[in-house]
Amino acid sequence: MVNGIIGRKVGMTQVFEEDGKSIPVTVIEAGPCPIVQVKTQERDGYQAVQLGFGARKENKFNSPERGHFAKVDIPPTRVLREFRVKSLDEVSVGDTVDAGLFSEGELVDVTGTSKGHGFTGVVKRYGFKGGRKSHGGEQDLRRTGSIGASATPSRVFKGKRMPGRYGAKRHTVQNLQVIQADAERNLLVVKGAIPGPPNGILLIKKAVKASKGDNTES
């Protein structure tokens, strides 16, 4: 069984629980994802399925890409991602994975690429406090402060948090509750925020850390 699906972040909104509590949710367009290739232990050294997602103009594909899809007779997709699988029993090329994979109440992990912030200072990037605005500290408003001691060790430790590129990195948010899953509309609604901008490509998998109780509850 495939345990994940590719999706596109649509945006956020809020919905109400029965007791009137409003909860923030993210709407995801998930699937349908055709299985384009199956990787086997014998041939590839590991077991996985390659899923496709999203349409794109035919003439935008180069010929190796066209060949890859033509071989299995599947309309070419914009995105290809692999998902490791434990057993290859129930998967075959041409099958489609859709949002029906998930059920309401289930916990999922969502992976995406966070928004890029460019070259950022330490206040925004790491939440440093910066300096004070008054009492003569005006010139140190957003500075990092000390980056270490002097003669010992005579160097800056590796990993010291400093200004630099912030965001545009792969991030995973774990254990988000599925509020709604509808295969017909390719719709997946999860509780909470997920990384990246609207239209960002997401990988949605069954939660790694969920106990059995969590995922059979619904």
């Binding site: 649509v10 909104t13 919905v15 109400f16 949710v25 709604q180 509309r185 719709l187």
Partner: peptide
Amino acid sequence: MNLIESVESQYM
């Protein structure tokens, strides 16, 4: 109707 609207309409 986009997906967000279709989700919201269920709760409105």
